[in-house]
Structures are given as C-alpha cells and as structure tokens.
C-alpha cells in the first residue's frame, strides 16, 4: 500500500506504524510521530494499523529559538 511519510510517497506492506518505521530506516531513532495530523505515542506505534493513503509525520530534535 501507499503511505506518505513527510510528504514523500512510499510503498510498504500492510501493517503497523512501528513496522513501517522500521522498514523505512527509523528503527531505534529518537523521533516523534503523527498519523493524519494526530499524535501517535511511541508506545502506540506497534498497535497503530496503517491504511492506504495515510499521511505520517516523523520529527526529530532540532535547533530552535
């Protein structure tokens, strides 16, 4: 199925957010996530099933003022 991660389209197997993140290289990284504009806590990623067309945001610490 197709998902959009930070606006980039990816083809992934149907499954959870945790699985998709692992596949796309985010395993073990310090990140926070949202799906379709809703925050998904790290603990909830393994039970968050993705659907075709879902929009995922992945953010990491960054400099800020």
């Amino acid at each position: 199925m197709r998902i959009y991660l930070n606006d980039d389209m990816h083809e992934v197997s149907p499954g959870t957010l945790a699985a998709a993140l692992e596949t796309l290289g985010f395993g073990g990284r310090k990140i926070a996530t949202a799906v379709n504009g809703r925050f998904v806590a790290a603990a909830a990623r393994p039970r968050t099933e993705l659907a075709d067309g879902d929009r995922i945001e992945v953010v990491a610490p960054m400099q800020g003022g």
Binding site: N6, D8, L24, G25, F26, R29, K30, I31, A32, E57, V58, V59, A60, P61, M62, Q63, G64, G65
Partner: peptide
C-alpha cells in the same frame, strides 16, 4: 535552552547528532 522539532528522513542523522 530552547529546542524544536522538525522532519527527519530515514537516512538523516542531524536531529540525533543535535540531541
């Protein structure tokens, strides 16, 4: 210190280094 959060790709490491 103030910090923020921004998108990071699967291959990027800037955020981890900053942290």
């Amino acid at each position: 210190v103030t910090v923020s959060l921004r998108r990071e790709s699967g291959t990027g490491r800037a955020g981890q280094a900053f942290w």
